[in-house]
Design a protein around this nucleic acid. Structure first.
Lengths: 329, 329
DNA sequence: CTGAAAGCGCTAACAT
DNA sequence: ATGTTAGCGCTTTCAG
């Protein structure tokens, strides 16, 4: 059961440890004949490189930490999946942390990952403000890319969907289908998704109705809030409920059905994100799909460059979403 | 930015590297006075232990690999969450792998994790049979616990819900509420959940109706199959659709609604797992809740013991589920 | 192109 | 209770 080491392979192939290392890691040119011998010996003995030793020596673990608020948020699994694939494809492994939506836990997880010498950190911050200190500290030590949510200007590179463009897509569609009394059901707080989607609504809704930009109800990104929002808003008979994410929309749909409202005839309902639930809702939800694969690819790409630290200007990448028209509006 | 090492702390506190290590790792008794001095120096210099070096020396990375078929399967995120918390609580970090439901990818991920010297592996096998070889190989090298799904007898320790008990709960409930023409909508294949849930239905359904055990339709664990199953079964007017998981049930519910069936009056629909979607379905789904927290705790506990390898008999832990009665039946 | 030697930062024997 | 001595398995100078 004793592991086969470079030394064993060197012994078996009659050359030095250094040469074996060079062959197997492909670091430097090696004679064709020698290389063959070494590879054969390695194969025969079942040599498996020890990444820990390699990491200690080369100061690179080939590991990236993925820190997110709550894996149970239905938008994240598909993102995690894409990230995992993108990173494993480059031979990097993913350490996962779930922060329970708590900035203190988040700070602890970041610290733990730093102690484990992750090469880089991929982070979806819990909170725009309360995550900032830990994020900034980490960004000074390793390459760090913020995903999906921001964390204040200049803190780190970030990749996210273009929320304003997504909202514009929704508003255009609603305008084109004749809606004139829209209402925005959003989330309070400073999270970038909340802020940007709301701002985009305020900026674009006037095209449907001069009064529209003022019709805003703010809660949080939950199904419960979607239900509650309907109770509050339905009496004023909006003809479109523009929800800041799919969970809110799902709650709204549910409550509207209970109230006997006819969706989409009486009122359209739209979401944002296109989580798996969206296609299953009744009626199936019209929503804005995030370009999850590209977000992941872009994040992985950004991680590649630079040794982290304070250097250089921060990059902010915004990717275009696309509208998925289903039955709800 | 050069990292502070044990040596620096030793120098600053005037004692040997070994002593500092002993204080900071708490491995052996150390004089109270010395300990204080060392700790102060470490604190002052901002010492952070290097886990990679520690791992190389102690042959333990404090890392466990979590390998699962597809993080986008809605049952897994909550399991991942609980596992992450349980393991981080013991100071272990989680390497995550998503296998895309492909045994070859699974084998590759397992190998990658082994190369990274994970202390243990937590694995939800992709396939009962096709995962076996890779799993057995890994189980011979590190402690390995199978979660949620089995992988043939004697391959490794395993922790899962008691599927038979869950099905019995459903059947009892349906019997108590007067259902007499149930039908099982399951999944084909050899996955343990598929087999066990079906077998439990066959064993218990006779209590409702002598003909019931034969009324079985098999597809896969998907929403699409749930919809298709309704098209096939509805003409025979069952009064209960017992679905093998919540996705199937969600599809069935959706199709039944389209057909104008009255759930639960005309027909009850039940699921299994209690994924987040279950509470959101319309009507809200009656289902069997898996004890996710306990599954995770038990798996973490099992990982703790033993150095892996071939030793000892395999443990199989089955945890009791509970019935969550909502509106669908 | 290849070998010898020097560690990466830490822990574990072995001394004292 | 503390210090000294060896490495863990690998990469990487530095010679040749």
């Amino acid at each position: 059961m004793a592991e086969v080491t470079l030394k064993d392979v060197a012994l078996a192939s009659g050359c030095s440890i250094a040469t074996v290392s060079r062959v197997l890691a492909g670091t430097r040119p090696v004679g064709a004949e020698t290389a063959r011998t070494v590879r054969a010996a390695a194969e025969r003995l079942g040599y498996r490189p020890n990444h820990v030793a390699r990491a200690l020596r080369s100061r690179s673990t080939g590991t990236v930490g993925l820190v997110l608020p709550q894996i149970t948020n239905p938008f994240f699994p598909s993102l995690v999946r894409e990230l995992e694939h993108a990173l494993h494809a480059e031979g990097r492994a993913v350490l996962l942390a779930d922060c329970d939506d708590d900035p203190a836990t988040e700070a602890a997880r970041i610290a733990a990952f730093l102690g484990r010498q992750v090469d880089a950190l991929l982070l979806i911050p819990v909170d725009e403000r309360r995550s900032r200190e830990a994020v900034a500290g980490a960004a000074a030590r390793v390459p760090l890319v913020l995903l999906d949510r921001g964390c204040g200007p200049g803190v780190a590179d970030s990749v996210a969907v273009d929320n304003a463009a997504g909202m514009a897509l929704v508003l255009d569609h609603l305008a084109a289908t004749g809606r004139r009394r829209p209402c925005f059901v959003g989330a309070a707080g400073t999270a970038s998704a909340a802020v940007e989607r709301r701002a985009a609504y305020e900026a674009g809704a006037a095209a449907l109705d001069p009064e529209a930009p003022g019709r805003i109800a703010l809660g949080d990104f939950s199904v419960e809030w979607g239900r509650a929002a309907v109770d509050r808003l339905w009496p004023s008979r909006p003809d479109a409920l523009i929800c800041a994410n799919d969970l809110i929309a799902a709650g709204a749909l549910q409550r509207l059905r209970q109230l006997g409202a006819d969706v989409p005839r009486e009122v359209a309902v739209t979401g944002f994100d296109d989580i798996p639930l969206a296609g299953l809702a009744d009626p199936a939800l019209t929503t804005v799909r995030q370009p999850v694969g590209e977000l992941a690819a872009e994040a992985a790409r950004l991680l590649g460059r630079g040794p982290g630290g304070e250097q250089g200007p921060r990059h902010t990448v915004r990717l275009a979403p696309r509208l998925v028209v289903r039955d709800s509006g």
